[in-house]
Computed example of a mutant assay.
Amino acid sequence: RCCMEMFRTILTIIFVIASFAIIIIVLMQEGKSTGLSGMTGESENTFWAQNKKNSLEGKIERFTKVTAAIFMISALILGII
């Protein structure tokens, strides 16, 4: 019983940290609107679009996905417990 309470406390702390991290990360991200250049369809062929995953913005997007997964898994486990 003691281990279960400790597990719940640790999971709750992870849940709260992940929720604050998601808020901060989403606020740090740039807007996705491409304006008139998005209508031509050429924006996907640019050097920037092809190498975006190596940039800071790409790393922030990847970190957002990982943090959101941690948030959802911890919320699911907390809901089951």
Rank of each mutant, 00 (worst) to 15 (best):
R1C: 12
C2W: 09
C2M: 07
C2P: 04
C2R: 07
C3S: 11
C3G: 09
M4R: 07
M4E: 11
M4T: 08
M4Y: 11
E5H: 08
M6H: 12
L11C: 06
L11G: 01
L11N: 05
T12E: 11
I14G: 05
I14E: 09
I17H: 04
S19P: 04
F20S: 08
A21L: 01
A21T: 05
A21Y: 08
I22P: 03
I22W: 09
I22T: 05
I23A: 07
I23V: 04
I24W: 12
I24G: 09
I25V: 07
I25R: 01
V26E: 12
M28I: 09
Q29T: 05
Q29S: 02
E30W: 06
E30V: 00
G31C: 00
G31T: 02
G31P: 02
K32S: 14
K32F: 14
S33D: 12
T34K: 11
T34H: 10
T34C: 13
T34F: 12
T34P: 07
G35W: 08
G35V: 02
G35L: 02
S37T: 12
S37R: 12
G38W: 08
M39D: 12
M39T: 11
E42V: 10
E42I: 12
E42A: 15
S43M: 06
E44M: 08
T46C: 01
T46E: 02
T46P: 00
F47D: 03
W48P: 00
W48L: 05
W48M: 04
W48E: 10
A49F: 03
Q50A: 10
Q50G: 09
N51M: 02
K52V: 01
K52Y: 14
K53Y: 15
N54V: 07
S55V: 06
S55I: 03
S55N: 08
L56W: 13
G58Y: 14
K59E: 14
K59D: 14
E61R: 15
E61K: 15
E61I: 08
R62Q: 13
F63D: 13
F63C: 14
F63E: 15
F63N: 15
T64H: 11
K65I: 15
V66A: 05
V66T: 05
A68M: 11
M72E: 12
S74K: 04
A75T: 03
L76N: 10
L78V: 02
G79S: 00
I80V: 10
I81L: 06
I81A: 04
